[in-house]
Design a protein around this nucleic acid. Sequence first.
RNA 1: GAUCUGUUAGCUCAGUCGGUAGAGCAACGGCCUUUUAAGCCGUGGGUCUUGGGUUCGAGUCCCAAACAGAUCACCA
Length: 507
Amino acid sequence: MQNHLSEQEIIRRQYLDELRAMGVDPFPAQAFSVNTHASDLRHRFDTEPDAFKEISLAGRLMSKRNMGKASFAELQDSSGRIQLYINRDQICPGESKELYNTVFKRLCDIGDFIGVRGYGFKTQTGEISVHVQEFFFLAKSLHPLPIVKTDAEGNVHDAFTDPEQRYRKRYVDLIVNPHVKEIFVRRSRLINAMRRYFDERGWLEVETPVLQTIHGGAAARPFHTHHNALDMPLTLRIANELYLKRLIVGGFDGVYEFGKMFRNEGMDRTHNPEFTSMEIYVAYKDYIWMMEMVEDCLEKVITEVHGGTIVAIGNRKIDFKKPYRRLTMYDAIQEYAGIQVEHMDEATLRQYCRSQHIAVEDSMGRGKLIDSIFGEKVEGHLIQPCYITDYPLEMTPLAKKHRSKEGLVERFELYVNGKEIANAYSELNDPIDQKQRFELQLKLAARGDEEAMMMDEDFVHALEYGMPPTSGLGIGIDRLTMLVTGQEAIQEVLLFPQMKPEARHQA
RNA sequence: GAUCUGUUAGCUCAGUCGGUAGAGCAACGGCCUUUUAAGCCGUGGGUCUUGGGUUCGAGUCCCAAACAGAUCACCA
């Protein structure tokens, strides 16, 4: 992709040849045995100095301070950094001083992988370090790394912060920005903690198709693809809900899936074309039970990953301690917009939206209009975790009709920091009602609603065999991770966010 | 999709009224055996994102494009 090498890249390539000429393989094949990590030494040396008398470490050389016949360097392994003290006569006990003078001092660059053996000690200034007795070259790095330095006051100099470069070259970002690595460690722990919570309760982790002939389970535009052998169009899933409910029909008490979803829509700091959701369905439960499960799960999982229930995002502090506030959608609109929409008809709602400069389209039915008012007037106020319950039937074709409130469904969404992070229902299990709901969606589609759901005959057929009363939940894992790690852009919690190719690298 | 902002050395950034490009770190050559943003002396390194235009002359002014970020619209 590059035909022009910088001066520094040319020099590093020349060093490859020089190393080989000296009999040092710049990419040796054999394993290097490691018995200590940087953080072990840093954290335990003061209390257990005897444990570090014969240590070997490996990692990337991140800085070099040569002082003639001795040098200090920093080694970065997966656990962090540790200082090395390398003395010429220690690593070159014989006549030849080439390993120190030439291999280490000249041919070894910042970014190269090295292995060292020696012992732990403290320098005169009190820094825990490795006194290196043996030095091994493990792998050459041909590109110079950004040099990020931190001074005695903790100020970071020359930080590698350009988001474009960081996302395109995430490997470099991870090498030089330790706080970035921490975000992804936390993300993984969060997912594992949730998985443990579900497994402990006996629910089964499953996998359902990504390639679908009928995309269903959510209101969104899909990606289209094509299967050659079958010569048929397929779409990438926008949700896995209808498959998971088929499994409840099949007799599982609880099933869940962490999976990538794909939606062919806009991208911004809270949307990536592919994102991770967790959906779970539990038989013989309803949405009231689900609210209790979700707040219990989040409180436990966040405490486990974060060390407490309070997370900071921007200037705000959000407390995930249960229980969470519960507010019906109509009451929420009453509270924040000052109007009672319950008995308003479509024309009145549309007129209100226009008066408030809320964008409306002719294809919008009553449900979507209410949702627009909610989105415009209420969402931004919901900072602390809050359940919004009881949605208009029209916009929720997969949820069961409310047990006592006409025209509503048993649904809640969990809002945190002004954003929806979870969505749950008492699942609709009446196949005749379900079929009618799909037909209502088809009517909305005919009016021009591009996100209206498609009829899924096989799913209705599955419900006709009987599905127990079931509660289902979807959580946006990326958004939850954003909250737990204090990030305000989804790109910061995705290792490889979607990017357009750079023009200079095309063709 | 709209608006605004940005793109200069490997990295972080200066660049005045339009007059052939600067610093620190990194690199290269020296000196230095407990330093730590190590230090000291010296050297090299640029298609100023791309393409047009104005001008005697453009990193700088104008137009267009690419990519990114922010805000908005849509969505989760």
